[in-house]
C-alpha cells in the first residue's frame, strides 16, 4: 500500500477543492484505513483548511485601511481627478 501515499496525499488535497469521483473516494478511504501517515496528513490538511475559514471571518474585523492610507488615497484621487 505504501507506494500510493504520494497519490493519496494529492487526493486528500483535491478533496478540499473539488468533488472526488466515486472511484477516487474509494481509493482514498481504502488507503486511509491502512495508512496512519496519510490519515494524519489528511486530518492536518482539514484542520488547516478550517483554520483558514475562521481566519476569513475574523479578518472582516481586522483588515482595515489606516488613517494614513486613507489620507494618501484621497490625495491621489484629488490629484488625478482634481481640476
Amino acid at each position: 500500500m505504501k507506494h500510493a501515499c504520494r497519490k493519496v496525499s494529492r487526493l486528500a488535497s483535491d478533496a478540499l477543492d473539488r468533488k472526488l469521483s466515486p472511484l477516487e473516494r474509494l481509493r482514498l478511504h481504502f488507503h486511509l484505513l491502512l495508512c496512519v501517515n496519510c490519515r494524519n496528513f489528511r486530518s492536518s490538511l482539514q484542520r488547516l483548511h478550517e483554520t483558514f475559514e475562521h481566519i476569513r471571518s475574523v479578518q472582516a474585523h481586522e483588515l482595515k485601511l489606516t488613517k494614513d492610507q486613507r489620507r494618501r488615497l484621497l490625495m491621489e484621487l484629488e490629484r488625478k481627478l482634481g481640476d
Binding site: K2, C5, N37, S44, R47, E50, H54, V58
Partner: peptide
C-alpha cells in the same frame, strides 16, 4: 511514493488557532 517521515496529526482547534 511512501512518506519520507512519519506524519503527525494536529491537535489544535482551528477556532482557537485563528
Amino acid at each position: 511514493g511512501s512518506w519520507n517521515e512519519n506524519q503527525h496529526a494536529w491537535k489544535e482547534d482551528p477556532e482557537i488557532l485563528c
